[in-house]
Amino acid sequence: MAGSNPNAKPMNLTLRVWRQPNHQASGQIVEYKVNEISPDMSFLEMLDVLNEDLLHKGQDPVAFDHDCREGICGSCALFINGRSHGPEKGTTTCQLHMRKFSDGETITIEPWRANAFPVNKDLSVDRSAFDRIIQAGGYVSVNTGGTPDGNEIPIPKDISDRAFEAATCIGCGACVAACKNASAMLFVSAKVSQLALLPQGQVEAQTRVENMVARMDIEGFGACSNIGSCAAECPVGISLENIAILNREFLTAKVVSNNMA
């Protein structure tokens, strides 16, 4: 035992879990009990306990995405008690610990809900729409080799720091799940503003924002109504300021654009 909280007692919980065999099939909430859950367990370790139990009983374990369990890969994506990644602010599901829950509690666990994120199975969804948005322009067009020395272009520290903050987006999709319109504006704006802030990204700034926004619309994400649930639920604290930067970049691009489409 970690000894972090010597008084913490194991908990018994009721889980209401979304089960859906595949994208085509319909799904439903199924109730399970898990017992003797240590408060020092992570939420996903609690689900491991459930899955080992189901497997022993010959039942299909609950499918969910996860990998690094350090809050950085962006794989885990659970909608817990109606909130992206659960009740703790600034935390991915894998870093949420059971000490945030209490003995006897009922916990509802669903996948992200968005048209642009179809369910693969149970709690696993298809977020390839995010990749296609990046492919539409979320890069600087440089080939390997022949680049100038890293110190050739000084970048003011505060600009570099702001670009870094935007670049820390983990692409988990919590912002989409938190938004009543299932908008991807926070995700898209984080990449747009990272590259718009840096001199390396400014060369293609106009086409980038136009193409990424167009792709976002094609993928079926909803419109942004500037309520800010996305930023409130973002596990890594991506700021709403990025959406303002995106809007500015987008308007500038439209004014000077040659793209009549």
Binding site: V142, T147, D149, P154, I155, K157, S160, A163, L198, Q200
Partner: peptide
């Protein structure tokens, strides 16, 4: 040494000093 140049050109936001250098 080429790796650093490549990554900077891609827009990787490495930590910088107040003078703007890496």
């Amino acid at each position: 040494v080429n790796i650093i140049d490549q990554c900077v050109a891609q827009g990787v936001p490495f930590a910088r000093e107040y003078g703007g250098l890496l």
